[in-house]
Design a protein around this nucleic acid. Structure first.
Length: 362
DNA sequence: AAACCGGGGGG
DNA sequence: CCCCCAGGTTT
């Protein structure tokens, strides 16, 4: 089947398709907190939190953010540490930085009002094609289709697409198919229905085709190929790094460093350290890293903990050592800031999860 | 186009 | 253990 034929098919079935989909959605939709409002601020907040994040994982964060920052003005007025503390544990911390920057721009440049079109929203930090379409559809009724991971799975099955979804041509086709199907009158509900279908029925491993409200239009299901869709390009292996971190105590306080705002774990507070280089012992790695990062000479002591942690593109084995400063006074060469922090104050700081794993043992 | 950027749940 | 999730930004 050609892409052109797929598009014609989408246009031909669009009306009965979305009618069946919407009826199913209105009958079975989960009662999620952000579905109870059309407030652009709340919708935007939910969409940012839910980027690459499961509903069950993001929901408590959404509730806590809305409680702490009820308006875009409240969020804009918060400190970056405060925002990051609320984001702690959710991952992809650039989202928190962009969330904050976006709130400040909406308040300072637009009087606290979000743009009312997908194109206008798209220009704000942290808002890409998906999020712009989602907010525009839900909050402002603009008939633009969203294409997220759920929709990709639904569409590649409906139209039995056998090329890798990472291909730009496939992404263009998916956008066009989604736009051909989207409801002009209820784009917000239609988009959420497509995602709900992907999350609850058209699932990755074991799709429940007998329960699907649009199975009669599904080419992959008809051919028994639903398990083989979507097709994805093979991914590269993730390397394993040995990492060391130092617990340095002085007068009942511990030395923490705030990571630079950009890059991995940007803005989070951590125990200083770094990667063990080939041929290096843990002690040598600690001495080298702390000289580079803090400008001090240390004597590595007792091993406190070893923890494993997986990131997106690599894994680490993190070894935590009690260390003593032999000479020098710590100066931030890499970190945005250094601070001596009492253990009772740890809960005020946003740590990477890999640090949280050994915090109780410090 | 490819790389970078977290963490958690489920099979 | 691998896969994938209401993706966006940078190179």
């Amino acid at each position: 089947m050609t892409d052109h034929a797929r598009l014609e098919r989408a246009a031909a079935v669009a009306a009965p398709f979305r009618k069946a989909l919407l009826a199913w959605y209105r009958r079975t939709a989960r009662d999620l907190p952000w579905r109870r409002t059309k407030d652009p601020y709340a919708v935007w907040l939910a969409e940012i939190i839910l980027q690459q994040t499961r509903v069950d994982q993001g929901t408590p964060y959404y509730e806590r953010f809305l409680e702490a920052f009820p308006t875009v003005e409240a969020l804009a007025g918060a400190s970056d540490d405060e925002v990051l503390k609320h984001w702690e544990g959710l991952g992809y911390y650039a989202r928190a930085r962009n969330l904050h920057a976006c709130a400040r721009r909406v308040v300072s440049d637009r009087g606290g009002r979000f743009p009312e079109t997908a194109a206008g929203l798209r220009a704000l930090p942290g808002i890409g094609p998906y999020t712009a379409a989602a907010i525009a559809g839900i909050a402002f009724g603009e008939p633009v289709a969203v294409v997220d991971g759920n929709v990709i799975r639904v569409l590649t099955r409906l139209f039995d697409i056998d090329a890798p979804v990472e291909d730009a041509a496939v992404r263009k086709l998916l956008d066009a198919l989604a736009d051909a199907l989207v409801s002009p009158r209820s784009p917000g509900d239609h988009n959420q229905a497509m995602m709900e279908l992907g999350a609850c029925v058209c699932t990755p491993r074991t799709p429940d085709c007998p329960a699907c409200p649009v199975a009669k239009w599904c080419a992959a299901s008809a051919a028994g190929r639903q398990h083989a869709r979507p097709v994805r390009r093979p991914k590269k292996p993730t390397p394993l790094h040995e990492v060391v971190a130092a617990v340095i105590r002085r007068d009942g306080a511990y030395l923490l460093g705030k990571r630079p705002p950009e890059g991995l774990l940007g803005g989070l507070w951590e125990f200083p350290g770094g990667k063990v280089q080939p041929g290096e012992t843990h002690a040598q790695a600690l001495q080298r890293e702390l000289r580079e990062e803090l400008g001090v000479d240390v004597a590595p002591g007792k091993l406190i903990a070893s923890v494993n942690h997986a990131y997106t593109h690599f894994r680490v084995r993190l070894h935590v050592y009690a260390c003593t400063i032999v000479s020098g006074e710590p100066v931030a060469h890499v970190h945005a800031e250094l601070r001596w922090v009492a253990k009772d104050d740890f809960p005020k700081y946003a740590f990477p999860t890999a640090n949280r794993k050994f915090l109780d043992l410090v």
